[in-house]
Design a protein around this nucleic acid. Structure first.
Lengths: 219, 219
DNA sequence: GCACAAACTTAGAGTCTCTCTAAGTTTAGA
DNA sequence: TCTAAACTTAGAGAGACTCTAAGTTTGTGC
């Protein structure tokens, strides 16, 4: 029964994340001290740093879940699927999986998104984590498609995809489901953006059908 | 006229940047204190924060020069050049202009590049500045090509281009001139990556249309 | 030259993040 | 129950950064 210690740790960790996001949402990130977070969670300030290396880390507590999704997608890949389809499919898997231990409709989820978008230090941390993620993504692509992709091309590709996701996410204003938006962004990156004047935004959907994913192969 | 004061300020600023990069290169970023930088530059620690808001800022002292290059490129643009050509041309302008007040062969330039690549805090700051840069780039594109680009598409595009540059730069190992590498990366983003097996990297220049897959593929 | 105003520099006190160490407390397993 | 490992904690301290008040230098009008 080695469960008691583990359960207590998970509980403390969760209490710290919850307390932090609550206080951040109420008073702002900079104006909330680690001491206040620890007090709200019922532990000492020293314990906070036992669970998170930095104050920033508490906002990205669940980042590692995306790594697992990536691992799963690549574990099921055999390198026969065209890269131009595999990459957008990977993006959709990342966008649709619930990689966050709070439910999507939890207020703290919204607080977290707003913090990352508005606090420069957190945005920088987010971008850094994404860049590291893009690095391992590129490495995995090279291993799954040996000979097809150079390291430089893979790094350029995954960097572009992550950049497109970030840019698209920043300009996202609701409406269309986010998973569709980011998947299309990935398709644009691998297959090219619709930029010629005859390919106006209003006709984008017809172009999208042609590009990747599922079928209508009516070229 | 007020020339003496300006000159002295510029001299102090330059002394601080030089002292900082020298000490960073010698002892590392974290192990160098602001007090040491100030002493080496012959001013008080308080003065350091008169010139730079943070210790990190001293590494990115000349970032604003890229903004000026972007402004110049867009000032000379009239919106008739195809976006698929204009964007890579912009990238080449950014890559070839000497946007750094130390010469390219100055040892401090190499120190700076190595620091940004190896110190997480600096890499994060670099990425944040790039993201802000991508934002204003997207805004300028929307203004130069009204009606052709939505805000979301422009943000996705410039995000992808910056991401591609970062990824390609990270995997850069010399050989080909860097300006060529990043310009080609931008071309990949706007027009699509050469990903099918018949389209090997060596003959990318003959790649013509931007459909997702001209793929004779054995699936 | 001289005095005044603005710009610039500085010391000092203080807050907060983060590190490290040593000591106390709790849990797992014999 | 006893022991060893894991976990928590207080306390001391370094260092980035802020703020204020005081000193110094520079440009301008006389």
């Amino acid at each position: 029964m080695a469960g008691l210690r583990e359960a207590k740790k998970a509980q403390t960790r969760r209490a710290l994340v919850g307390a932090a996001l609550e206080l951040f949402g109420e008073h702002g990130y900079e104006r909330t001290t680690v001491a206040e977070i620890a007090e709200q969670a019922g532990v000492s300030p020293a314990t906070f740093f036992n669970y998170f290396a930095t104050k920033e880390d508490v906002v990205f507590a669940d980042q590692h879940l995306y790594d697992e999704i990536l691992r799963e997608v690549f574990a099921a890949a055999d390198g026969t699927e065209p890269i131009a389809e595999f990459v957008p499919r990977t993006v959709r898997a990342l966008a649709t999986a619930p990689a966050w231990s709070f439910p999507l409709d939890d207020p703290l989820t919204a607080v977290r998104a707003r913090l990352i978008a508005s606090v420069p230090a957190l945005r920088a941390g987010f971008l850094l984590r994404n860049a590291v993620f893009a690095d391992s993504w590129a490495r995995a692509l090279c291993e799954t498609y040996p000979g097809v992709l150079t390291e430089a091309t893979a790094a350029t590709l995954t960097g572009a995809v992550m950049g497109a996701l970030q840019g698209g996410f920043g300009a996202y204003s609701g409406g269309e489901p986010l998973a569709d938006v980011v998947t299309r962004a990935a398709e644009y990156v691998v297959a090219g953006f619709p930029l010629s004047s005859s390919d106006s935004p209003s006709r984008r959907s017809s172009r999208r059908n042609r590009s990747a994913g599922n079928r209508p192969r009516n070229s």
